[in-house]
C-alpha cells in the first residue's frame, strides 16, 4: 500500500508482480459493479448488455493480471491488460464479431470516472504540502511541460502522418 510520508515514497518501489491476485480480483469486482449504474446512465444499453460488457472487460483484466504474475519478464499490469485486449480482438479470430459486439457498446469515458474518484480521495497530505511548498512558479512550469509535451508529440505525429501517407 502506498502511503506517502516523505518524498522518497514517490519513487515506485513495488512492481505489480507483488499484487495478490485474489484480492485484486475482488477489488476489481467491486469497481466493475460501481461501473454498472454509470454505464446505464451513459449508454442506451440494457442491464444485461452492460453486465455482459463489463464481465468481458473483467475477464481481460483477469488474464492480464495472471500474465503479469507468471510471465518471466516484467511489464506493468496495465500493459499486459492492454495487450490481452488487443490480442483477443484481432480481426482474424473466429469470435471477432461476437466479442467486439459484447464490448463495443461500453462507454469508455464512463469507465474513467471511478479511477478519478479514487484518485481524488487518495491525494495525500504530503502532496498538498509539496504543492504549497513548490508554489505557483512550479505550477506554471508544470503547465508548460504538459503543453510542450502534448503539442510536441502532436506536431511530430502530424508531420509523420503527412509524409508517410
Amino acid at each position: 500500500m502506498t502511503v506517502y510520508e516523505s518524498e522518497e515514497d514517490f519513487i515506485p518501489t513495488s512492481d505489480d508482480r507483488s499484487m495478490p491476485i485474489a484480492a485484486t480480483l475482488q477489488d476489481l469486482l467491486i469497481v466493475s459493479l460501481i461501473s454498472v449504474p454509470l454505464q446505464l446512465i451513459a449508454t442506451d444499453l440494457s442491464l444485461g448488455s452492460v453486465l455482459g460488457g463489463l464481465l468481458a472487460l473483467y475477464g481481460l483484466c483477469a488474464v492480464g493480471l495472471v500474465l503479469t504474475k507468471y510471465v518471466p519478464f516484467y511489464l506493468p499490469s496495465v500493459a499486459w491488460i492492454s495487450l490481452v485486449g488487443i490480442a483477443l480482438t484481432l480481426p482474424f479470430w473466429p469470435w471477432f464479431d461476437w466479442f467486439t459486439g459484447v464490448v463495443d457498446g461500453i462507454d469508455f469515458l464512463a469507465l474513467a470516472v471511478p479511477p478519478l474518484a479514487y484518485a481524488g480521495l487518495a491525494i495525500s497530505k504530503l502532496e498538498i504540502d509539496v504543492m504549497r511548498r513548490s508554489g505557483w512558479k512550479i505550477l506554471i512550469v508544470a503547465v508548460l511541460v504538459f503543453v510542450g509535451t502534448y503539442v510536441g508529440s502532436a506536431a511530430i505525429a502530424d508531420f509523420m502522418l503527412s509524409v508517410t501517407s
Partner: peptide
Amino acid sequence: VAAASPLIVIAIMPFIAKFGTTIGPAIE
C-alpha cells in the same frame, strides 16, 4: 482515505482493457 491509493490502478484496469479492444480491430 490513504487506502484509496492502491485502488486507483485497479479501477483503471477495465478502462485500459476497453482501450485494448479498440486497438485490436484497428490493428492495420
